[in-house]
Amino acid sequence: MSPGFWAGLALFVLMLSGCATGPNANPRDPLEPFNRGMYQFNDAVDRAVVKPVATVYRDVLPSPVRTGVSNFFANLQDAWSFVNNSLQLKGEAAGNSLVRFGVNTFLGFGGVLDIASEMQVERQTEDFGQTLGYWGVGAGPYLVLPLLGPSTVRDTVALPVDAQGNLVAGVSDVSTRNSLTTLNLLSRRARLLQASNILDQVALDPYTFTRDAFLQSRLNAVYDGDPPDDSEPFEPTVENPVK
């Protein structure tokens, strides 16, 4: 998608984030009515199209091939992680990301083989939303984006920058770029098939379960697994039975 699309989406999010739903709204999710509607839309698209195709992808391709595809896109992410680790002044993590990208690109057939992990070079994935969080930009309200799924206002505003850091977006041939983007989507969705099936079985309210799991995951990502004591806790409630 073009930078203009992401810029327009970010502007829409900023306008939307100013619209609260009243005094009884969840402080982390003041846009819950909108988000629930978008969640239902995304879930319908997923069940009708994405999940069935991802299931075929998983069942048809051998595990080593799927692992190679996953490794390839993770290697591209390592290049962007190097930039964001550098912006966060994380010298060791930036060095590891650069080493990983170099080793896997040149010795791992473009990243299909994860040689760096065998060398015990740690992966620390970072995106621009995490970089903004590192420098003190608050997450803002929870937001469910069309087709893209869970996000926050901060992460959504960061999307145009992350899009520029996506090496696939730099592929000049449109058909090749679209094919790689689709392959990446299928690879990621196929890895989540079992988790989504479990979610359907155990969560009384999949929306709140997904929301709280995402917000906790992003909090841990920004603080490298060690959020400050004054961060808002994510505790189960009667309305929000996180298991």
Rank of each mutant, 00 (worst) to 15 (best):
S63C: 09
S63R: 09
S63M: 10
S63D: 14
P64I: 10
P64R: 06
V65R: 07
V65T: 12
R66T: 14
T67Y: 00
G68I: 01
S70K: 04
F72V: 03
A74R: 08
A74P: 03
L76G: 15
D78Q: 09
D78V: 02
S81F: 01
F82V: 04
N84S: 11
N84E: 15
N85Q: 11
Q88C: 08
Q88E: 13
L89N: 12
L89A: 14
K90Q: 14
E92T: 15
G95N: 13
G95P: 14
S97F: 00
S97E: 04
L98M: 13
L98G: 15
V103I: 12
V103M: 03
N104Q: 05
N104S: 05
F106Y: 12
F106I: 13
G108M: 05
F109G: 08
L113N: 13
L113C: 14
I115A: 08
A116C: 04
A116H: 09
A116W: 05
M119S: 08
M119W: 11
Q120A: 08
Q120H: 11
V121T: 12
V121R: 06
E122R: 14
E122Y: 03
Q124W: 00
Q124N: 13
Q124V: 06
Q124F: 00
T125H: 01
T125K: 06
T125R: 05
E126N: 14
T131G: 04
G133Y: 03
G133A: 12
Y134L: 03
G136M: 10
V137E: 06
G138P: 04
G138D: 15
A139H: 07
G140D: 05
P141C: 04
Y142Q: 05
Y142K: 05
L143Q: 05
L143G: 06
V144Y: 00
L147K: 02
L148G: 03
G149L: 01
G149E: 05
S151R: 04
S151Y: 06
R154W: 07
R154N: 09
T156F: 00
